[in-house]
Design a protein around this nucleic acid. Structure first.
Length: 547
RNA sequence: GCGCCAGUAGCUCAGCUGGAUAGAGCAAAGCACUUCUAAUGCUUAGGUCGGGGGUUCGAAUCCCUCCUGGCGUACCA
């Protein structure tokens, strides 16, 4: 990465002087100044260390500048200091050109990083399989999957997991509701139970069930049979919806199988007891989370002896730790934020390493259609499903919009403004840029040998240098998005790159008489295309060949 | 009451591990298609970063406080 190289060069030159030898060089951060007059990169390292070295920031910057200039081998075109103590760097064009040549060679790997294949478990969506996926799950799905893609690209070994809530009261109710729908189908009296599932989708499930065997033997079955059938059908539907969004899970973790059909809960309870973290009160069992950082204690076993949802969640998360991951990420809806502190407390009680545990909270997104809030249809009391959504809007648009904002800010998503052809549609803006490049490359592309012989020093136009700089900052953007688990940083980056490209496209012709220059520009475009493809892929968005 | 997230241009939002003159898109006003894709480009206008204190060389960013909005606050999951 270019920034790594620069940091290394600065560090090496400063280490020549014993005075700087014991500085904390992890504080040596480079930023890209907003104002281009301040160079390509800038550091506040002198200001940060001025008090420790007992010098005025500007004097310290001057000392550093002298060392830097002394050891520079024309990597930098210019190094300068600016009050109150910034050191600004301008990189030589030939360095930019050299790095640009690598982009095409790296191809699909360009921008990827190294994190030693540390193992990450990321759990997201995990919607209860008692219904279909609806808009409330959409942002979680898109953000979770993009984070997974980004982590993987930046060098982690990622497992994507869906926790299937296939046990408990809700599941029983689902089974009972399905049985009533079967009765309905058979034109018999039916009555969906109090608190049951009234959605039409169970009618479809009932129809499917009736195809499997004769109705008389179906009606003899226990509730569990209906529950199991419904869960299996709906899980398949969920899986299919996710596939339509290009989201695939590596692991479907069944609560019933992994937690209830095993001794998991009993074992965890023993662990809690041996940590002296459990007590009885009013016929229930409580966990002493208040002693580990939460405000309250919580019930883990109800007075009827069944375990609470929280107990199951403790068992599930403890198991995540047992499975040996270096990093455990939970992508949760913001309505679950209050669970974080109690889950952390319980994991601490069980002596797990909390630094491995990470949460991404997804705030609600309000969907506006025809000027109306359609996040939930108030009239029918039903949710708009992801199926409905994908019938009307293409996957790329939906996914891009869902990750185009920081996940901890709630935002309004106006569908009408984002329709195809609309001016307010950033994904088409980006894809269009990519398609424009394709159309040029289709007319004239370079073969491998050409690539090596291209003279990139011919790329001297202001916009060309700007494009090169932007392309070369892609790996840093990926690393930043990975470190903060923020897909929107990729989305913004791609829009900026597209903007610079469109402007360049308008002002400068690529396929021209001057063959050498033309080749250099084609190589530049090939690099941009690689960034578009790699970047959009991180968001689960395609890069169409033409539009 | 308590907790979490948010409040930045008319609208939707970036910028928040403190940095230099606060940005983008849309909307508004004007301009550019004999051209490798006009789903584009160029120009203009638009701001007391919710209010008030504090911390320091420097605050949209950190701390305190108040106001406003969203979401939570079960022996439901």
């Amino acid at each position: 990465m270019l920034t790594d190289k620069i940091t290394e060069k600065i560090k090496n030159s400063l280490l020549n002087d014993p005075r700087f030898a014991d500085l904390d060089f992890s504080n040596l951060l480079l930023s890209i100044p907003r104002n281009p007059d301040h160079g390509d990169f800038s550091t506040n390292f002198a200001m940060i260390n001025s008090s420790r070295l007992k010098s005025k920031p500007i004097d310290l910057a001057q000392e550093m500048l002298n060392l830097l200039k002394k050891s520079d081998d024309s990597f930098f075109q210019d190094i300068s200091i600016e009050k109150p103590g910034f050191i600004n760097f301008v990189i030589s064009n030939k360095i930019y050109q050299r790095y640009l040549a690598d982009v095409v060679l790296q191809g699909v790997d360009y921008g990827s990083g190294i994190h030693n294949n540390k193992k990450v478990l990321i759990e997201f969506v995990s919607a209860n399989p008692t219904g279909l996926l609806h808009l409330g799950h959409l942002r979680n799905a898109a953000v979770g999957d993009s984070i997974a893609r980004i982590l993987k690209f930046s060098g982690y070994d990622v497992v994507k997991e869906y926790y299937v809530n296939d046990y408990g009261n809700q599941v029983r109710l689902l089974g009972e509701s399905l049985k009533e729908r079967v009765l309905e189908k058979l034109k018999l009296d039916f009555n969906i139970p109090e608190g049951g599932y009234k959605g039409d989708y169970l009618i479809d499930v009932a129809e499917t069930l009736l195809l499997t065997k004769d109705s008389r033997s179906i009606l003899k079955e226990e509730t569990a049979f209906f529950s199991n059938f419904a869960i299996s059908c709906l899980t398949k539907e969920i899986e299919k919806d996710l596939e339509d969004l290009d989201i695939n899970f590596d692991s479907w973790y069944s609560e019933k199988e992994k937690i209830h059909d095993s001794d998991s809960v009993i074992n965890i309870k023993k662990l809690i007891m041996s940590a002296n973290g459990l007590y009885k009160k009013e016929k229930a069992e409580w966990i002493k989370t208040s002693e580990y950082g939460d405000n309250d204690d919580w019930v883990i076993t109800k007075s009827d002896d069944s375990s609470t949802y929280f107990m199951n969640d403790i068992a599930y998360h403890h198991d995540k730790f047992l499975r040996g991951f270096d990093k455990i990420v939970n992508v949760w809806g913001a309505d679950h934020h209050s669970h974080i502190s109690r889950l952390k407390a319980s994991m601490k009680l069980l002596s797990n390493d909390l630094s491995k545990l990470d949460f991404v909270l997804i705030q609600f997104v309000r969907l506006i259609k025809d000027g109306q809030d359609v996040s939930m249809s108030k009239r029918s009391g039903t949710y708009t499903t992801i199926k409905d959504m994908l019938n009307e809007f293409n996957k790329d648009l939906v996914r891009f919009m869902m990750v185009s904002r920081s996940s901890d800010s709630h935002f309004d998503f106006d569908l009408d403004k984002c329709r195809e052809g609309s001016d307010d549609n950033p994904i088409f803006y980006i894809q269009y840029a990519s398609a424009r490049i394709n159309s040029i490359l289709n007319k004239h592309d370079l073969n491998k040998d050409d690539t090596k012989s291209v003279d990139l020093s011919l790329l001297t136009e202001e916009k060309e240098i700007k494009l090169i700089k932007k392309i070369l900052s892609f790996p840093d953007t990926v690393e930043e998005a990975s470190g903060t688990m923020s897909p929107h940083k990729i989305a913004f980056y791609l829009q900026e790159l597209a903007a610079i490209f469109h402007s360049y496209y308008k002002s400068t012709k690529v396929l021209i008489e001057n063959d050498e220059l033309s080749k250099a520009r084609i190589l530049l475009l090939s690099s941009i295309k690689i960034v578009f493809v790699n970047g959009l892929n991180l968001l689960g968005v395609s890069s169409p060949e033409r539009m």
